[in-house]
């Protein structure tokens, strides 16, 4: 199983707020998160907090979310986009949603959760996006902030799940304050409310996020990325975990 991730944290100019946000995320066992700014995180925070339960510091990436109301807002292969690790779009019309699903070279399509859905999700673009490995993002912090936003979040999430059947959905926070973050198991449980199955809800915070990251990496290269993992039994591993040789 891959680590838990939160792929959307809002950037705030206040360094103290940002620090507490990152620290809370690390405490809640989240491993990766995004800050929509092209500055590397080392300049903002000196020492990254250690993730609870793993002796590794939290990994922070940069993400850009383009809000599109016109097709000229997204410029494919623009130089500015290269400095971001993740690229997300939020289409506001059906035509743009179709184009984002089928054509644009992005990693994440954000589903609007703060207002009534301006269009229906059709099966063809959604399954096209699933085939291309583009993920749909539902963020939950608006649901925590306000009761009417909560209605829209649940309604829009449910109508998305009707169409995509829980595939390629990620749940993220879009939190501005540390108190808007929730733990990964809380979000998994919240996914049940959004119409995901048990397995899909857990994947929405772990392995789908990982595939989004790999998709983002392959966007930068010609075709794909390969990871190699050492699978030898070194003498450093405890005897109980070593394969038996008789």
């Amino acid at each position: 199983m891959s680590v838990f991730m939160d792929l959307n944290l809002s950037f705030t100019a206040d360094k103290r707020v940002l620090q507490s946000l990152v620290e809370t995320a690390a405490h809640l066992c989240l491993c990766l998160q995004e800050i929509p700014t092209p500055t590397p995180i080392n300049k903002l925070i000196d020492r990254l907090p250690i993730v609870q339960g793993r002796s590794r510091p939290i990994r922070v990436l940069n993400r850009l979310t383009v809000v599109m109301s016109d097709s000229s807002h997204f410029r494919p292969n623009a130089v500015e986009y290269r400095s971001f690790d993740l690229l997300a779009v939020r289409p506001t019309t059906e035509k743009l949603f179709h184009a984002a699903c089928m054509l644009y070279d992005v990693d994440i399509i954000c589903i609007c959760v703060t207002e009534k859905l301006p269009f229906f999700f059709k099966r063809a673009p959604v399954s096209g996006a699933v085939d291309r490995g583009v993920a749909f993002e539902v963020s939950y912090s608006a649901a925590i902030r306000d009761a009417s936003m909560r209605r829209y979040t649940i309604a829009n999430a449910l109508s998305l799940m009707d169409t995509c059947k829980g595939k390629n959905v990620i749940l993220s926070s879009a939190a501005e304050k540390a108190l808007e973050l929730r733990g990964p198991y809380d979000i998994t449980n919240l996914g049940l409310l959004f119409g995901l199955s048990d397995g899909d809800a857990k994947e929405a915070v772990s392995s789908t996020c990982r595939s989004v990251l790999l998709h983002a990496e392959s966007r930068k290269t010609a075709s794909g990325v390969i990871y190699t993992v050492k699978s030898s039994s070194e003498p450093g591993t405890p005897a109980a975990k070593r394969a038996k040789t008789t």
Partner: peptide, 19 residues
Amino acid sequence: WSSLTLLGSYQNQACAFRV
């Protein structure tokens, strides 16, 4: 659990339940 997750304010101040 989901209602605990979505509770965000107590008497007009921000709050969070950590399960």
